[in-house]
């Protein structure tokens, strides 16, 4: 065999070259993904951050060429801080409610459902997770409308007073459910719920049945077993799910546009600074608020073992 590169065919030669230089193979494989994701996408994110430090020319509305921290200081006006507090509050409320509503189903799936039923239930959670987000939001427009579905049932069940009371409650109420913060909250929970069920289910699957029996044998009542055995073992799953429910609520602007009292959320504020107001530097600075909040949140979630449960 000769050492020069006169192989029988071109492909053979290429194959040999690649075999002899594994780093070249990795480089070829990496080229497109790196150009696309780190170059184009990462570059866009970087450019966005840089633009937040440029001044907006107040006459032309164009981005000038002088560096300034104006956008970052405008970010912390009272109105904008109120937007951040409202959004983070909603994200927290949605997360807590999702845990409460997700847990029973996840627990039933992990502990009682037999193989076939379990497969079916997993599918029943996966389908809404992947299916049309926009249509799922829209369905609540039908449900919450003043002459819509919920009102019809409320009338039939004679609960009109209760609904009236809810709508008159300051802050969460409103003229009708579809233009109230409470209605918006119901939609957020509905949309992100599957993201909470699946990780809790996964972490409960890892709780051995024998452990629960041992707890019972040692005299613990079911409630005590739950508090001392099941719940601690479910915490990584809860933390993992909460990353989704929290982060997705934090950046959403579609739900607040369609449902609710049109009080601004972070996503909506970014959207209008970028679009209607034409103030890209401020929108860019605002974009980094959810990123910063999530960075803090992820650090906390990691301590609860969320990453092992993903």
């Amino acid at each position: 065999m000769t050492t020069d590169s006169k192989g029988p065919t071109l492909t053979h030669r290429i194959a040999r070259t690649l075999h002899q230089r594994p780093w070249l193979k990795v480089l070829l494989l990496l080229a497109l993904p790196v150009i696309w994701l780190v170059g184009v996408y990462g570059g866009s994110l970087g450019a966005l951050l840089i633009q937040s430090f440029y001044a907006l020319d107040s006459f032309s509305g164009a981005i000038g060429d002088s560096l300034t921290l104006d956008s970052w200081s405008q970010l912390f006006t009272d109105a904008n801080v109120a937007v951040m507090v409202r959004t983070v509050g909603m994200a927290a409320a949605v997360t807590v409610a999702s845990v409460i509503i997700a847990f029973p189903l996840a627990y039933y799936m992990a502990r009682y459902a037999h193989k076939r039923v379990k497969a079916l239930l997993v599918l029943a959670v996966l389908v809404p997770l992947w299916s049309s987000y926009l249509v799922r939001v829209y369905s609540w427009k039908l449900i919450l409308a003043a002459d819509g579905i919920i009102n019809w049932f409320v009338e039939r069940l004679g609960m009109r007073r209760a609904l009236q009371f809810l709508l008159e409650t300051p802050f969460i109420g409103g003229p009708s459910l579809s233009i109230s913060l409470f209605g918006q909250f119901l939609v957020f929970v509905y949309i992100w719920l599957p993201y909470m069920i699946l990780p809790i289910h996964a972490s409960l699957e890892r709780v051995p049945g024998s452990l629960l029996e041992a707890s019972a044998d040692l005299g613990a009542r079911p409630a005590v077993t739950f508090r001392k055995v099941t719940w601690p073992m479910a915490i990584p799953g809860v933390a993992a799910g909460s990353i989704f429910t929290f982060s997705l609520t934090l950046g959403d602007y579609i739900i607040p546009t369609i449902i609710g009292d049109s009080s601004p959320f972070i996503g909506l504020a970014i959207y209008s600074y970028q679009g209607v107001a034409g103030n890209l530097p401020l929108a860019a600075a605002f974009s980094f608020i959810p990123i910063a909040v999530m960075a803090v949140y992820l650090t906390a979630a990691r301590r609860f073992g969320a990453f092992e449960a993903l």
Binding site: G267, I270, I291
Partner: peptide, 9 residues
């Protein structure tokens, strides 16, 4: 990341 950040970037 929230879609709006990817979109705006």
């Amino acid at each position: 990341l929230p879609g709006i950040i990817t979109g705006i970037a």
